[in-house]
Amino acid sequence: MLRRTVDRVAADARAASFRTRSIKKDAKLQGLRLVVSMTDLTTLEGKDSPGKVRGLCRKAVDPAPGIEGVPSVAAVCVYPNHVALAKQAVAGSGVQVASVATAFPSGQAPLDLRLEEVRRVVADGTDEVDMVISRGALLAGRTQQVAEEIRATKEACGSAHLKVILETGELETYDLVRRASDLAMEAGADFIKTSTGKVAPAATMGVTLVMLEAIRDHHRATGVRIGMKPAGGIKSAKEALHYLVMVKETLGDAWLSPSLFRFGASSLLNDVLIQLRRLDTGVYAAHYDVSKE
């Protein structure tokens, strides 16, 4: 495999350039609706309870009662213990259930236990599996091991979609982000994803651009379209629109779809809903108008 290196300064500068596009009125409305439909509404906390997961699912299915034309989100993303409940709560709505697995967020467990976790969530009915790679192994140079683990996880997924979390905040360099992206795509990832949301920095525009370019090169070489999911740290509607601009200008319209691009977020949706309400009524919403999850 050809090893590509990334010019960090140039990548960051190019990523920053996507912030300068002005998106108003109709385009903004379309963009915000698209953001909603691409959201993986996420709750990954120790305090997650059945009640909270049910509430989240309700919000996922109908994010903005009272505002016309707002779609359901793409998926709810939960811990393995809540997969069965979430599956039941979103049944019939078209909303997917995603589960983190493989000893999320650290990935520091024996491989057979991690694979068993994947098989369990798939048996519970999850549509998508978000796995973490072994960053420790990658940083130690054991790339083959990482690739084999991804391959094994893909096999354990069966028909469920596999998203591979690189945890870019721990990968130190853009070169390694690129290397991990290429590795994951070759090993069978359906999506590559920036972060767990548990490590800062999480998704940044620079790191997302590096991964989008890896996806573009992979598509050119193989014709296979891999999806992208920045997760964590994207909090405002404006920022989300900048990401969409970056996707369009790097990969083209084909990727502007929930089947190939997702936002992993919890608070982003609220800001998008406040903006949509503003476009709908002309008035900014109050803090009590949107649920805090």
């Binding site: 900014y284 919403a285 109050a286």
Partner: peptide, 8 residues
Amino acid sequence: EQFAAHRD
């Protein structure tokens, strides 16, 4: 107008 209408 926004000073008056903003719900927050």
